[in-house]
Write a protein that binds this DNA or RNA. Structure first.
Lengths: 212, 212
DNA sequence: AAATATATACTGGTTTTCCAGTATTTTTGG
DNA sequence: CCAAAAATACTGGAAAACCAGTATATATTT
């Protein structure tokens, strides 16, 4: 199955997920878990001094954005394969991860067999996806989004206040600017998300993990 | 630590979580995992023919609502302890689970020690919570919600269409009713969620797992 | 230093939401 | 069968969002 020993690293903020992955991988002799981390920056530091074949990487990490970590990993260690492991199945996120160099994309409800198969595939130089993910990627979405919107500091601030239910007038008072400025931020946010109104803006922000 | 053998059952839609829990629990002789399920209804069927000490129960299950399963378990087997294991830390959900009879509430980022400790506590007849959960429960929320809103079939239908970004006029056309009817549904939804506008409505609906 | 992006702010206007109250019909539960 | 809940619908009106375009100042990037 594996031509040689495969060295892996796990990054997930759930100790139980890490535990489960270790238990699963340990029943395969040639799969060797070198380390596990609950923070993204720790894996970057680790990779500076250690060569790793596969990183299994959660997207939602407490200290940073898994997508950025993915890009960083591929920048510093291009030969290292990255398999995203996440609950998110939004096409935008999947495409963004692939754009950032991910070799695989698994959902957390994947089976053991699926995980092992995925590791095999990426080690063979292939891309690997959970059941259903390929379908999500390939079928043109009814509402086609571009990449995940990149928000400025101010836009994110305004978005959070909108999500908290505040009106433009209240937000303007809070941020000491004109209500017309906030209206302009709203318009820009709607355009970036290709959203027709606040309902879609909030929903997509949630789905993309921009707000919790 | 445990006066006697503790029989447990795990219900979670993530095989990796189940794997992790099993690995963890198996290193404690007196903790005996009888079975695991990825569907809520399966655990109910199991409990009909088997006495269980502790059920570790995810709230988000694919076939049903973990909160309802919790209530069902406590109805049919009051002596069985239920520990919720979830990613949600909204006060409403925590209170609802306690209301439905849960004995513990853990977040999925809990450590191994925390889990074992929780099992110990519930077996001793105590309530048990993840770090931080007690704080969430005890501090009066800035925006105090009541219990998780119970939506009618029609209300949920309208909510989903609102979340999809449709206006009241469009929703009315879709459902073959007057736009004024939809406006009335909107008003009722805002009242049930104690939301001041659609932004809060959508945000809370996602936070409470009512829509995905 | 220059180009670009961001933040800010305005005019003028339409659409939509939110609000409060009221009323009737239909459905559901006891 | 009856009471209660849900669904439906209306009047009248204010507040807020959404829209399109335009403009200037500041910050950032090249």
């Amino acid at each position: 199955m594996f031509a040689k020993q495969v060295n892996l690293v796990i990054v997930d903020d759930h100790p139980l997920i890490i535990q489960g992955l270790k238990a699963l991988l340990s029943s395969h002799e040639q799969l060797n878990v070198l380390a596990s981390f609950t923070k993204g920056q720790d894996v970057i530091a680790f990779l500076l001094g250690q060569e790793v074949d596969v990183v299994i990487l959660d997207i939602s990490l407490p200290d940073c954005n898994g997508m950025d970590i993915c890009r960083e990993i591929k920048t510093m260690a291009p030969a290292t394969r990255v398999i995203a492991l996440t609950n998110h199945n939004e096409r935008s996120l999947i495409m963004q991860m692939l754009q950032n160099g991910a070799n695989g994309y698994l959902l957390k409800n994947a089976s053991s067999e699926e995980l092992i198969s995925s590791i095999t595939q990426v080690m063979n130089g292939q891309l690997s996806f959970s059941t259903g993910i390929e379908e999500i990627i390939t079928q043109p979405a009814v509402y086609e989004q571009g990449p995940v919107p990149k928000l400025t500091r101010r836009e994110l601030e305004v978005l959070k206040l909108i999500a908290a239910g505040e009106t433009s007038t209240v937000i303007a008072d809070r941020l000491c600017v004109s209500p017309l400025t906030i209206e302009m931020h709203r318009r820009n946010l709607l355009q970036k998300f290709k959203a027709k109104n606040v309902a879609v803006l909030i929903r997509m922000s949630f789905q993309l993990g921009l707000i919790k």
